[in-house]
Design a protein around this nucleic acid. Sequence first.
DNA 1: GAAATTCCCAGTGGTATAATAGGGTAAAAG
DNA 2: CTTTTACCCTATTATACCACTGGGAATTTC
Lengths: 139, 139
Amino acid sequence: MKISTKGRYALRMMLDIARQGEGAVVSLKDISGRQEISVKYQEQIVMQLGRAGFLSSVRGPSGGYKLVRKPSEYKVGEILRSIEGSLAPVACLDGEENQCGRCGYCETLSFWQGLDEVINRYVDRFTLQDLLDECQGQG
Amino acid sequence: MKISTKGRYALRMMLDIARQGEGAVVSLKDISGRQEISVKYQEQIVMQLGRAGFLSSVRGPSGGYKLVRKPSEYKVGEILRSIEGSLAPVACLDGEENQCGRCGYCETLSFWQGLDEVINRYVDRFTLQDLLDECQGQG
DNA sequence: GAAATTCCCAGTGGTATAATAGGGTAAAAG
DNA sequence: CTTTTACCCTATTATACCACTGGGAATTTC
């Protein structure tokens, strides 16, 4: 039951950009220095975050990426879901095309639905700002 | 963020055995008929459930497996964890040997800890009996 | 002793993940 | 016009895990 590396990195990158201040344009190279994630790998992630409408970009020297909204307007859940596709703990919940034939009489389905709800409620309860506030004192 | 097939099957198998009544000895072949899981695959799962002390076995004809405790005394969480190892959403929480070097100043660690707690609290809130009760009317 | 079952180890094919490598184009700053 | 950056592909690798199978030994019942 693991979040993928991409999902974890995406969160750290968003947080890193947010931490540089409002409207800051941050290059992948800079993020790489702080977060120890290769620029090449970041490219793959940032592309998805851009398509999701979470980041805008500036080209050229001193270019980079910046947040589109304020940190308080990003739920952690939507960032994770945009990378992971879904946080559902079982495939049956990912969409009708993934349902198994046992759905009608599955004894465990509602249990899994409940778990899915609990997970999504939790990750949607936090914004980037919340995570920033939590560790003001730190590096 | 998916539970493995083994974890899902383990829960269904435990539930299947529980459903056959108190003290019932259930063969893998019988479970296979109802749950559509190959006997061979079940063997691997049941071995782990046995080692965890959840099931005891009876060899020979009309042998099989039976619950050691009452259904109300099995938390779903302990069954899942015995198969999955851990339900932690990130490896850093799996034990000290898995911590990354960033632990000391990781902005996301406490967020993940919270998610881990929420997940484990949920799965430990249900027992096999709870799941049985939920779908008395069904197949 | 034949059949049914658990027990146990070994193997296998597939798929996804994590990451790197390398190519290039486009835009902007100085 | 050079440099720096984003943008956008297509691989390739390595590896780990997953889902599942096979072969056979031990045990018990009849």
